[in-house]
Amino acid sequence: MALYVAKRVLLTIPVLFATALLIFGIFQLIPGDVVQASMTVKLMTSAEQDAIREALGLNKPVLERAAAYTVALLQGDMGRSFRTGQPVLSMLLSQLPYTLILIAASLFVAVLIGIPLGLAAALRRNSWVDSSAMTVSVLGASIPQYWLGLVMILIIAVDLRWLPATGSAGFETLILPALALGVGQMAIIARLTRSEMVEVLQSDYVRTAEAKGLGRRTVVMGHAFRNSLIPIVTMLGLQVGALLGGAVVIEVVFARPGLGTIVVQSILKRDIPVIQGGILMIAAIFVLVNLVVDVSYSFLDPRIRTGEGS
């Protein structure tokens, strides 16, 4: 087991390294640089342009810059923003908590609504409860997050004034974005919960448990639901990737700070160090979550463990 975990951890290093170099390489293919893109380039002498390029480290050959970038990265230095002059790492780290909180809250929404919905549908299979729950989940999966976010702002924040439309200070500013981002995942969780529960409820061990005279509640929650959780937990981990992507849109709609917002802003302003750092950080989160999912899955299901001669 320890060997499996160690191997999975070690494998993330070349993945992140290759990702970093790939991102760096892609940006070298873009013609021009930040000096050329500046609206005042025509007002600067070549010497002034060169001085700024030197200050930004843009005057060196690409391989030299790649090597310097890699070495700096290993030391935790992602460079400085072309726009603000701030260290990229500190800029990104200042945004990271906002995104992580949003993702965590969205997952909470997905679980809080999705699992009971799936359970109810499975336990009342082919009834109006099942149809209603699955209709809700289909709607949740189909509604674009951007549209849902705007509609919630208009109805709940503007018309009813129950919650703020924007901002990031206080729990109340988190509710609408978490709902908008979490509803899609809720639908997936609900459908998965239903299908797993339907399958498990037809299992021999469930019938055995019922035959032994155990109460319905104990059978459902203690035996059936517990076993259904394994794929649901795995799915939750994998959904973090989708939530990272969705957070980009939701952060913009609700004017929340976060990794998505800063990357989008940097793309629009061609602030390449921040784009590179932001994409790398998002990739690192994704790799890390996958690692945790892989490892936790092996804990939950021993058949997954490999290399232990099981």
Binding site: I153, V158, A165, A255
Partner: peptide, 19 residues
């Protein structure tokens, strides 16, 4: 000065009293 990059969000924020 609070930054609301999306124009629709900016408008909604005013109507909601956030700004």
């Amino acid at each position: 000065f609070r930054y609301l990059n999306d124009a629709q969000t900016r408008t909604a924020a005013l109507e909601a009293g956030d700004v």
